[in-house]
Design a protein around this nucleic acid. Sequence first.
DNA 1: ACCTGAACACCGTTCAAGT
DNA 2: ACCTGAACACCGTTCAAGT
Lengths: 197, 197
Amino acid sequence: MSTSAPILAVMTPTREALIAAAADLLDRGGPEAVTLREVGRAAGVSHNAPYKHFADKSELLAAIAARELSRQSEIIAARDGPVLSARDLMHGYVRRALRYPERFKLTFRRWERDAAGLGEAASQAHGLLVAAVTCAQAAGELPSGDPERMSSLVRGLAHGAADLALSGHLKSGGKGNADPDTLVDDLFDYLRLAAAK
Amino acid sequence: MSTSAPILAVMTPTREALIAAAADLLDRGGPEAVTLREVGRAAGVSHNAPYKHFADKSELLAAIAARELSRQSEIIAARDGPVLSARDLMHGYVRRALRYPERFKLTFRRWERDAAGLGEAASQAHGLLVAAVTCAQAAGELPSGDPERMSSLVRGLAHGAADLALSGHLKSGGKGNADPDTLVDDLFDYLRLAAAK
DNA sequence: ACCTGAACACCGTTCAAGT
DNA sequence: ACCTGAACACCGTTCAAGT
């Protein structure tokens, strides 16, 4: 029974330490602070030991992004309370983006290939949202229609609001009422109105 | 009368050539392709001539971002036809993001200071949207309320949909109906329904 | 005022060994 | 199988001059 382990957990300790060190450097000083030499130093290995675990620097960064997407799913799935609503899911999305801005920006870079199982981690997180949206549609809180499409709509807003906030493009207004969480609530409120026809 | 010139037009030709060369390198090969040496070569000057016009590399990149925001405003303002609707404005926003993905990503980096008049260029573009949103609210196409806040909502969705599309996070669905333009239209359709109470 | 060439420190990557 | 140290090409930045 205990022989089956999560796929992503199959990692040598050194590899995991390298990813952790790189993520830490990223959080502290942005992408420019992530040098393979500093990563190796922080992980207690030589400056080119990373090449035994990743093809190049880009692959190490992709591993950070994949880890971040997986953690997002884990945080949601590990809740013992009631299932999160689509609205709460999006508030969590915004919250994590604002808490780890550099990881957020890194996660949504334009990655070349389907590197480091990044696609699987992303679709798993998206699946949880689609389920929550379907539930909200059944309750009449969201308009009916393709749940995938509705999920993309609400996530598009949450993602854009978070990204605009991080890049400082949401504070032009004097009242300061346009923070990402407010916009998420606004959208859900309007969608409920639209659902009531 | 003709003595007053646009502020951003006050630039030495070399400075402008450096920005153009850097933007071109960015479009072709992403941020990693933008090296000061290559920029100088493309502009026909030495590899450190940029330091006579910009404090460092970051300031040159910020100048590209500011130019991109200004152009966005110019494109909108230079139309001789009828004033663009808020919906068309957002379609144009998505269109430009997909056409120049690297510039789009660069524009929404987390810039340190208010570098290179980036803030002014951004608020000018935002002002055009607020005007269009106010107009749509008067016509009953959008719910009433603070126009700034409503503008942030629609731009948040357009921005997020474009960014998700660029990073490949919008193609998970099988039907492929979740492209950014569709999401923009969906939002405006739902908002019109909500406006009709 | 604007530009150049040499120089320095640093980084990604490779390679020949080492256990 | 995993790691190390030296080496190479490249890049951002600085500086002393040059016109």
